[in-house]
Design a binder for these strands. Sequence first.
DNA 1: CCTATGATCCGCT
DNA 2: GCGGATCATAGGG
Length: 242
Amino acid sequence: MGRLALTGMKKRAESAGGEEDEDALGSPLPQDFFARDSRAVAEELLGATLVSTVGRRLTAGRIVETEAYLGANDPGSHASTRGVTERNRVMYGRPGTIYVYFTYGMHHMLNLVAEREGEAGAVLIRAVEPIAGIDVMVDRRAGRAGPELTNGPGKVAQALGVDLDDNGTLLGEGRLSVREPVAPPDDETGVSGRVGLSQGHGLPLRYYLVDNPYVSRAKPGRRIPKGRASGAQGRGHDRETR
DNA sequence: CCTATGATCCGCT
DNA sequence: GCGGATCATAGGG
């Protein structure tokens, strides 16, 4: 929970488009990173930095909560059973593509496409810890501050200015990019069922940094032993209450 | 602290 | 028409 917050970020981003300041946030994750099993991508995105330059304003946050969405076998996924549709076709596209959809008549959901071309898979960004451009985020979030700023998928999209214009674009080529973790994440990772689904909520596909204050909500989960690869198996009786 | 409910569009059946 | 990978608010304990 090191406060690496770059509080005094110069407002040069507004005039220059943010290029210089962006580079200080770390090197972009390679495309290969996303060309893997959605669960591995979801787990390893924890600690990475999500950067937005929407509206020529730089905002960035550390990813602290994700969910994996799979293909036909996943009843909670937009790519479940039914085939390719206008909305979900991005999920079948190139790894590293941004998938944004609009729901509940008012919220945008930000996902990053995984797996490989032709196979559906994506990772929902559920929560981030603000790193840069906090004043901008507060503005976009109607004055809210603290965890309320970005502790939910709709809040993340709003704070970073993400909308349907980003849908189908590639990370690094548009207004969004993801950077390698600044420091090795020493936080423990937890896994639990996904949030808000009517189907498929039992599958352990939600990943989060244990005890991070920006994680959206407590849910029964288990801790992943340090150094282990993505563990989708096994059920624990641990409670992650907070 | 908690649970309940309304808001408000669009994609899909 | 229905219901949603949600959020903010109102109300009760």
